[in-house]
Every structure is written in C-alpha cells, then in structure tokens.
Amino acid sequence: MAVYTEVGFDEANALVQRLGLGALTALRGIEGGIENTNYFATTEQGEFVLTVFERLGFEQLPYYLCLMKHLAERGIPVPAPAADPQAPPATAHVLDVIATQASCELLHTVAGKPAAVVQKLAGQSVLAPTAAHCAELGRMLAQMHLAGRDFPRIQPNLRGLAWWNDTAPVVLPYLEDAQSALLRSELAYQNHVAESSAYAALPRGPVHADLFRDNAMFATDAEGAAPRLTGVFDFYFAGTDTWLFDLSVCLNDWAIDLESGRHDAPRADALLDAYTAVRPLTGAERALLPALLRAAALRFWISRLWDFHLPREASMLKAHDPAHFERVLRERARAPAPYAVTSPAPEPVAA
C-alpha cells in the first residue's frame, strides 16, 4: 500500500462518478504495505479505497474481485468491489461470462493500470489483539472458508511453494551462512511435506493468505463490550490453497509475541477454538498443523527478504523487516507448540 502510481484528482473523480459513487471531495495516498498503490477516496456518498495494481495483471485480477463479491454476497464482512454500470454486457460462454463480467464491471483502468474501488470498512485495525479479538477472527475465518466452497474459479496461490522455490535462490546471496542454511533446509522440508499423502488430504479452497492484524477491522459497540469484527480486506494475495495454510498465516501473526516470535497460547487457543467450533479440523490438518505453521513463516520470510533486498521505487514505501519472520520460523521449527483444540476431529471432508 505504498504509492507507486500517482493518481490525479480529476482521473479519480471521473472514475468514482462513473461508478455512481458521487463526486470526489478528497483523495489521500495510504502509507503502509508494499504491493499496490492505494488511496482513500472520499465522495459525496462516503469513504472508499481506490487500489491501483502494480504487479497483478488484468488476466489475474478477476479471481480476487469475483471472490470478494462472492463472499460479500454470502454475508462475510468483505468490501465488495464497485461495479461499472456502463460496462458492456458479457455475451460469451457461461464460464467466460464470470471472467468477462469481472473484467468489465469490477475491474477498471487508472493511469493505464488495472484498478478497483471498494467501500472503506468501518472500525479500525487492532495491532495488539486480545484473546477476544482472536476468537472473532477465528470464527470469521472458518465462515469464510465454508462460504468459498462453491466459488467457481480456481487460481493457484501465486505466493505458494512454487514461488518459494523460484525466489529462494534470488535472496540467498544476501544471507549470512546460518540464515542460508535455515532457508535451504526449511525449503527442502516443505517440498517433502507437499509431496506427502497427508498433505494431499488437506481440505482446500479459496484462501485470503495474508490476513494479518492490519487487514482486519474491529469496532466496540459500547464501553466495556466485547470487540466486534467489522470486516477483512486486501484479498490480493488470495488463491486456491489449503485452509490450514490460511489458518497458519493467522496464527503466526495474531497469536505470537511480536518481539520474540514466540507462541502465545491464550490467543492461539482462542483463535483455534473459535475456528473449530464452526469448522472442525480433519485428522490430516491436526497432524500437519506444526508443518504448516513453519510453511507460513517461511513464505513471509522469503517475501520480506525479497522486498527488503530488491525493493521497488515508490513514494511512502516502508519495507517490512525480514528478521521478524526469521524469528517466527526458528521458533516454530525449534518448539512447535501444542494446541488445545477442544472440538472432536471428524472424518476428512471434501473441500
């Protein structure tokens, strides 16, 4: 969410008015994140977020935008992309209609690049979550996974194992010997896990794959009341992957000590218990949770190494410290924490 592409007020105003969102009154670049250009766009009708995609192309984006629309229509608190009422109707085969409609109605062009506009969610991110926040997140994550079961599109997680294998050689020259040894050994281990029959049995479907603390919003209805999750956003790392990987990404951010990377049992138990109350884990998932926690840590260590050592030029860019997820990975590999999952383990179900 750094600003790579400067968007003029007039161009943004023309877009939001074409989408029927009213005249633009303010446009402000959003600081934080490193993938896309994001602006807060205030119009006569409310607050919106304008995203200009810097790495994803027109052919990839229909998956993300259609997924957000699909989830929003099923009651998941996700900002639905604004559609262009002036877009030409799709006339292709039914499978092509999904992609064409997403491209024409939900996907727009700003400064020659693909763009989308979504409503700004209410509430605020909580960067020091309690067990209550983690329970809210876990419950919603399970509901989101179940709501995505009938989503018709399939697109691999573009930051999955294949990307790790391709990117690791690029970042290895920047590492010290101990770091290089860790990266090589963990990557070999994850390739071994991915080839196992237990991994093949994991339920899967659309996943967020980047649901960190700053990608969720909460509100408190009254003083002293329990926190209420008002929405999750930034689905632009989403893909078809195992639900357990998505859960592991959340556990590695919501339920650890940020300074040390160590497991925080009360928050982890709250998140897992709330998740499994909605969707109990299968036997294969229970067996592979420690391995997938390591996989999730490896994924973000590699991506942060890549962004830190090979940065792109951007206004307001702040690269994340890769050492954080190195610590998380070492903690997960050294002492995988036991989890008090209270729900019974059912027979595996089809994703």
Rank of each mutant, 00 (worst) to 15 (best):
D166W: 11
T167V: 15
T167R: 11
A168F: 11
L172I: 02
P173L: 05
Y174M: 14
L175A: 09
E176M: 11
D177G: 00
D177V: 06
A178D: 13
S180F: 05
A181F: 03
A181N: 11
A181Q: 09
L182Y: 02
L182P: 08
L182N: 07
L183N: 04
R184N: 10
E186M: 14
L187S: 05
Y189D: 06
Q190E: 06
N191Q: 14
N191H: 07
A194T: 02
E195A: 15
S196M: 05
S197N: 13
Y199L: 00
Y199A: 09
A201S: 14
A201M: 07
A201P: 09
P203Q: 00
P203N: 00
R204V: 01
G205R: 01
P206V: 11
P206F: 09
V207Q: 10
H208C: 03
A209E: 15
L211P: 00
F212W: 09
R213M: 13
R213K: 14
N215E: 08
N215I: 07
A216R: 01
F218W: 03
F218N: 11
A219L: 02
A219H: 06
A219M: 00
T220R: 13
D221T: 12
E223N: 15
E223V: 15
G224V: 06
A226N: 13
T230W: 04
V232T: 14
V232Q: 11
F233K: 02
D234N: 06
Y236V: 10
F237S: 07
F237K: 00
G239V: 05
T240G: 04
T240D: 10
T242P: 05
W243S: 09
L244P: 08
D246K: 07
D246V: 02
D246L: 06
D246W: 08
L247H: 14
C250N: 04
C250I: 06
L251H: 02
D253T: 03
D253R: 03
W254Q: 00
W254V: 01
D257Q: 11
D257K: 01
E259A: 14
E259R: 12
E259I: 04
S260W: 06
R262N: 07
H263A: 08
H263Q: 03
D264T: 01
A265L: 05
P266G: 08
P266Q: 00
P266Y: 05
R267T: 02
A268E: 05
A268D: 00
D269N: 07
A270P: 01
A270H: 00
L271I: 03
L272Y: 07
Y275K: 11
T276R: 01
A277C: 03
A277P: 03
R279F: 14
P280R: 10
L281F: 09
T282P: 06
T282I: 01
G283M: 04
